[in-house]
Amino acid sequence: MSTSNITTQKVNFKVFRFNADEDYLPYYEDYNMDVTSEEVVLDILNRIKWDHDGSFSYRRSCRHGICGACAIKVNGRSTLACKENMSTMIELFGSELTIEPLSIKRAVKDMIIDKGDFWEKHDAIHPYLISDVDEHPEHEHIVTPEEADRLLEADLCIQCGACHYACPALEVNDRFLGPAAFAKAYRFEADVRDQARNERLQELHSEEQGIWDCVKCFECAEVCPKDVNPIDKITKLHLMLFKEGVATSNVATRHAVGFKHSIAKHGMLDEGGLVLYSEGPGIVKHIPVALQMFRKGKIVMPWNMPKSDNLDEIQKLIKSSSTAKF
Rank of each mutant, 00 (worst) to 15 (best):
T144I: 06
P145F: 04
P145H: 02
P145G: 07
E146W: 04
E146N: 09
E146S: 09
E147C: 00
D149H: 03
R150Y: 04
R150I: 12
L151N: 14
E153A: 15
E153P: 07
A154C: 12
D155N: 15
L156A: 13
C157P: 07
C157Q: 11
C157G: 10
I158N: 06
Q159F: 06
Q159E: 12
Q159M: 05
C160N: 08
G161S: 00
Y165A: 11
Y165T: 03
A166M: 11
A166Q: 14
C167W: 06
C167T: 04
A169M: 15
A169T: 15
A169F: 10
A169Y: 06
E171F: 13
V172T: 08
V172R: 09
R175C: 07
R175N: 07
R175I: 05
R175H: 07
R175Q: 14
F176A: 02
L177F: 14
L177P: 02
L177R: 07
A180P: 06
A180G: 10
A181F: 02
F182K: 00
F182W: 01
A183C: 10
A183M: 10
A183H: 04
K184N: 13
A185D: 06
E189L: 13
D191H: 03
R193W: 02
Q195N: 06
A196V: 03
N198I: 11
N198S: 11
N198P: 01
N198M: 01
E199N: 10
R200H: 02
R200W: 05
L201I: 02
L201V: 03
E203M: 15
L204C: 03
H205L: 06
H205A: 07
S206M: 15
E207V: 12
E208L: 09
E208W: 07
E208S: 08
G210E: 02
G210Y: 06
I211E: 00
W212Y: 06
D213G: 12
D213W: 07
C214T: 05
V215Q: 11
C217N: 07
C217G: 02
F218M: 11
F218G: 10
F218P: 04
C220K: 05
C220E: 09
A221P: 03
C224K: 04
C224D: 06
C224N: 02
C224R: 08
